[in-house]
Nucleic acid binder design. Structure first.
Lengths: 113, 113
DNA sequence: ATTATATATCGCAAATATACGATGAATAGG
DNA sequence: CCTATTCATCGTATATTTGCGATATATAAT
């Protein structure tokens, strides 16, 4: 049970699902917004902007980093995070392709509902 | 621990995160594709198209229904599911608004990374 | 060297998600 | 009425996520 069946799906679906999972928490959405809008991407300021403890924020940052949506560097005493726009573009592209696939069937007549 | 801090975030972020979570599994992405592309939205055919047992598919359908992305009706012996385009449009709108917020800060000079 | 600061990581607890067999409920067909 | 079919739900096992205190690490400041 709870065996991972991910590999039996299409690679693009798995990739998109992973991006969606990274976005599936308000804290991570908020982190991305902060990184996009502020010049300073210092970890401490992200923590200040969120209702979460520092270790929890650090963990969310790690998840965003794992999926590639952000990148980070240690700058002396502090850590600096930025959005990885290349990966973000890929994420957008997958979402858009998925959207177009859904839309293509939209106007057709339904046989139910 | 694991106390739900969702309520301390912005309502739109929570709403978008919930949509993202619904899309955060390849099976649910595949289900939406099947519903959009096939005229017939009968549950059994969805099960056939996925590498999962029927109760598991039923559970994924329920999650999509809970978030409002699909709607379902019992048609005699079978169940019929369809995409709820109104909710889907709302989902797209939230994703797009989020995207625009990120993009607005994109070109600026970084002080790190 | 000592101390303060910033951040990551560890370890734990609780909650949620994933998956499916077994079972129930409801309809269709004989 | 009996049976097969279709699907939802229950129960259960396991995996993953969420959250944080405690701690480690590494730099900066004194």
């Amino acid at each position: 049970m709870a065996t991972n069946k991910k590999l039996e799906f299409q690679a693009e679906e798995v990739e998109l699902a992973d991006f969606a999972k990274a976005l599936a928490h308000p804290a991570r959405l908020a982190i991305l917004k902060i990184l996009a809008q502020q010049r300073s991407c210092i970890c401490g300021q992200i923590v200040e902007g969120l209702p979460l403890a520092q270790p929890t924020v650090s963990q969310h940052l790690k998840e965003l980093k794992n999926v590639g949506l952000i990148k980070g560097e240690i700058e002396g005493k502090t850590s600096c995070y930025c959005i990885n726009w290349e990966t973000y573009d890929r994420c957008r592209q997958l979402f858009e392709a998925f959207h177009l696939q859904l839309e293509s069937g939209r106007g057709q007549t339904q046989n139910c509902c």
